[in-house]
């Protein structure tokens, strides 16, 4: 059931954007947070608010993998099985979890006697944490450097209702609560968890140990002396580097790499 409150929140999402339809992706996240999946009613409601057809909304909802047409459990448990994590043990973790939970990919556990929560298992593509491989995600929070044993413990804790904390983030909320944050409604947990995990800091640590840093900026000293006249310094800096920079630009423009550059991932 889409309540009036939800309807109003969906409308508020659309109003964040110069053109309302831009709100559709976060709106569908909000639908999932209240409905537990993308429901026909949620689709109709988004279509109604945006003045587009239900088929257009449906077309979007079926394109993106985070939108689910079947009910998702209390916790969405993902295992990265893209190449690097798979090789580092993700395949073994995923196989162990399928067996342990007695579910297949994209399936949800039964609520057994004594269970406090259900779990939906899915294998994931790369989740941008390769330096912590093998990686799992619970409701899109990082669970770094997992093993088959720690993975089994994790899902047991989730099903038993025990509190679980991300290895590089906050206490884990439910999937529906997570979807609400993705819809753009903060839950106040931004200050939980560390700044960074150990692998994120390894290069910085080595640099500090060895006294390495980026070169000092000559201009900083000048700027302190003459804080109100940055223009001249800029001009000077630019002058000294002009030829080289221009040359690089010209070569980049004329080089054969341009087509690839333009085609590639946005730079």
């Amino acid at each position: 059931m889409i309540s009036q409150e939800t309807y109003d929140e969906l409308t508020a999402i659309a109003a964040r954007y110069p053109e309302a339809r831009s709100g559709l992706l976060p709106m569908l996240h909000l639908v999932q947070s209240v409905e537990g999946r993308v429901t026909p009613e949620g689709i109709e409601t988004c279509a109604d608010i945006l003045g587009i057809s239900a088929a257009e909304v449906s077309g979007v909802a079926t394109f993106y993998t985070m939108y689910k047409r079947k009910p998702v459990g209390d916790y969405h448990v993902g295992v990265c099985t893209n190449t690097l994590c798979a090789v580092m043990g993700g395949d073994e973790i995923f196989a162990r979890l399928k067996e342990h939970l007695d579910v297949g990919n994209d399936e949800t556990t039964r609520l057994r006697d004594g269970d406090r929560a259900t779990v939906t298992l899915e294998h994931l593509e790369c989740n941008a944490a390769c330096d912590y491989a093998p990686v799992m995600m619970v409701n899109w929070e990082f669970m770094d450097t997992m093993t088959p044993t720690s993975a089994v413990d994790l899902v047991d804790d989730l099903r038993a209702g025990r509190e679980v904390t991300s290895t590089r983030g906050p206490r884990i909320c439910t999937w529906r609560e997570a979807e609400r944050v993705l819809a753009g409604f903060p839950d106040g947990r931004a200050d939980e968890g560390p700044s960074a995990g150990p692998a994120s800091l390894v290069g910085l640590g080595i640099a500090r140990e060895r006294g390495w840093s980026a070169p000092p900026a000559d201009r900083d000293a000048d700027a302190d002396a003459v804080p109100e006249e940055p223009g001249e310094e800029l001009a000077a800096a630019r002058e000294s580097d002009d030829n080289q920079a221009e040359q690089a630009v010209v070569e980049a423009e004329s080089g054969s790499s341009e087509t690839a550059a333009e085609k590639g991932e946005a730079s």
Partner: peptide
């Protein structure tokens, strides 16, 4: 969307 804490 798959990096909730980053979004936060």
């Amino acid at each position: 969307g798959e990096v909730l804490h980053v979004v936060r």
